Amino acid sequence: MFTPYTNEIEGFTMNHQILFESDVTISDTLEAHINTVITATLTAQGLTLPCEVSVLITDDATIHEINLEQREIDRPTDVLSFPMFELEAGELPDAEDADPGSGLIPLGDMVISLERTTEQAAEFGHSVEREISYLTVHSVLHLLGYDHMDEGAEKALMRQREEAVLTTLGIVR
């Protein structure tokens, strides 16, 4: 089932559409929280044009299958991001990238394993909400061109942006 959201944060309406699909049980509260985190991340990055993000909340078996099919990596992971555009970190899509039918810029898809999120939260000693917030920010930044493949400047920039968004949301370690 897809749940679309139109977002409002601090009185500023962002006409982003976030499409949720879940093949595991997720509370309405956690789904709404993910929506808030996505919107906050887009806002923090300065993206004011209306965008669309698809979110699948799943389990380890499904994310493993997707990881194998899409990336040829034969193991589950916590989050996968499939950006629609090849952006550089900090670069934003523009109005020309919008779908003519919807007027929305399709940023891409994120897949989060709730099973892995729960395990990692316990391992790191914090809440599932904190872990899923981190993974959501991380994924949105990937959709916007951020990467961490090197251990240098790119990774440091991505980590700095992640922490800035989480701090803005009051989600700290």
Rank of each mutant, 00 (worst) to 15 (best):
G145S: 14
D94I: 01
G125N: 02
E163A: 05
V55Q: 00
E119Y: 00
E8L: 14
F12E: 15
E129K: 02
H33W: 10
S27V: 06
N35K: 15
G101L: 08
Q17L: 08
E129P: 09
P50K: 12
C51N: 05
L68Y: 07
L135P: 01
E91W: 05
E8G: 06
T167L: 07
L47A: 04
I171H: 00
Q45S: 13
A164Q: 01
G170E: 06
L80P: 01
M149R: 15
E163R: 10
L144Q: 05
E65A: 08
S113C: 06
L87M: 09
S27L: 13
S139D: 00
A156G: 08
T77D: 05
E129F: 08
I57V: 12
D74G: 14
T43D: 12
L80A: 10
T25Q: 15
L68V: 07
E154W: 01
G152L: 00
A122K: 04
E8V: 13
Q45Y: 11
L49F: 11
V165T: 04
T48V: 01
A122V: 01
P100Y: 14
F20C: 02
P83G: 03
I105V: 10
T25R: 15
S102E: 08
T39D: 02
E123G: 13
S139I: 01
E154A: 13
G103F: 11
D78G: 08
E115T: 14
D147I: 09
V37Q: 04
I57K: 03
F82A: 00
T41M: 02
I132Y: 02
P76H: 07
H33F: 12
H126V: 05
L166V: 03
T118M: 13
A164R: 07
D109F: 05
T58N: 03
T136L: 08
I9T: 15
P83Q: 01
H33C: 09
N15H: 06
S22A: 08
M84W: 06
E119S: 14
